[in-house]
Design a protein around this nucleic acid. Structure first.
Lengths: 203, 203
DNA sequence: TAGATTGTTAATCGATTAACAATC
DNA sequence: TAGATTGTTAATCGATTAACAATC
């Protein structure tokens, strides 16, 4: 009935590759070409897309702009999203300065930190706010997405506050598993975990 | 015969949680406790571990230090790894300053950049080298792991050079899919992809 | 002993793939 | 028309789960 998560997880990868093909000036592609470029099977791409409708033409493949637009609608990224950044340390600052977020539709519109040394400073044109203002500001701005860039020790209790403040998607840069209600999604960004997934295969 | 990748991918998450439990002063745990903390089923944890041996005791569970050590051996992270960082821009600098790598066994030992403005500067006690020296330095230091933090446009051609220079694991921060031989592993760090995996579920 | 938890089996569930009719 | 590629089906393959004997 509902679309498997594993399928949803691949859609952004398809979307990114379509944008790349467009940037390269191509206007049509095929499941075969996409599969080759992404290192997967063409059957899987066609199967994944078939969950959402018919986007291609027999014999010719897919119009890139058409498929891209549909994927953006499906993923709800045809719009812009306001996101909150929690943590203004080294990592938080790097995130705030990374213009890839805004370039791809995720606008960092507020930054929070608990250290008085950082509150009131300006990072990427935003004044760092006290975490005391978390709930008020998130509700006021109706923000649903949080980027969590604080030490692991504080991650769970800040997460609980984010959830209470109406956040439903958390991108967690802290190297710790978070407990959230079923209505809330968490994705993890831990580079060391990723490295450890590869060293297993070293001789 | 060989262990499924999906199992290998979960082991670092188990390891991270075991380290956390140790830090909290606990010395014994169970598949149930781990499962609850990680939001998964206890059967899956036991099944995953059973690929590698018998680490627990009926009735009491797992000694944390014992299981942690075994997971570290299995993942080959009981040792330290030297890694190369390619890219000394904002992102590269943030990576270089992130002490979580060294704290968890991945030592960044050289940094490369192609911009003459950055070559020769010092970041996190390392002098930025010209990418011209990539092959020579990696061979000399026998480095197998690369962190790729350069613009998407250059990622594939630098990847090809890394592979030729003997790199077998790449953590790719550039928002682009990489083509590599089967002997080489790539993991991706693209925060926007992660965000797009969550917006689908928003109302 | 009684209670708890492992490691493992078999069943269930879900994902991937190969193949092909439809059709551009 | 001939060639190419889709969307879909059915078969295969793989992963997860429930259940429980073994045993600490």
């Amino acid at each position: 009935m509902s679309i498997p998560t594993i399928v949803i997880n691949r859609l952004p990868v398809y979307l990114r590759e379509l944008l790349r093909l467009e940037a390269e000036g191509q206007s049509v592609t095929s499941s075969q070409e996409l599969a080759r470029r992404l290192g997967m099977s063409s059957a899987q791409i066609r199967k994944d897309l078939s969950h959402f409708g018919e986007f291609g033409k027999q014999g010719t493949g897919y119009r890139i702009d058409f498929l891209r637009q549909h994927l953006q609608k499906i993923l709800k990224v045809e719009r812009e999203w306001d996101v909150a950044l929690i943590g203004a340390g080294d990592l938080g600052q790097a995130i705030a300065h990374n213009n890839s977020f805004a370039a791809r539709g995720f606008r960092i519109t507020c930054i929070f930190d608990s250290s008085s040394a950082r509150i009131g400073t300006t990072i990427a044109k935003l004044v760092v706010q006290s975490t005391d203002l978390l709930e008020v500001t998130l509700r006021e701005k109706n923000i649903r997405i949080g980027l969590l860039a604080i030490p692991a020790e504080h991650a769970q209790k800040v997460t609980d506050r984010l959830v209470k403040a109406g956040i439903v998607s958390i991108l967690n840069y802290a190297p710790v598993n978070l407990s959230v209600p079923e209505t809330v999604r968490v994705q993890y960004m831990d580079p060391v975990i990723q490295l450890q997934r590869m060293t297993y295969y070293h001789l």
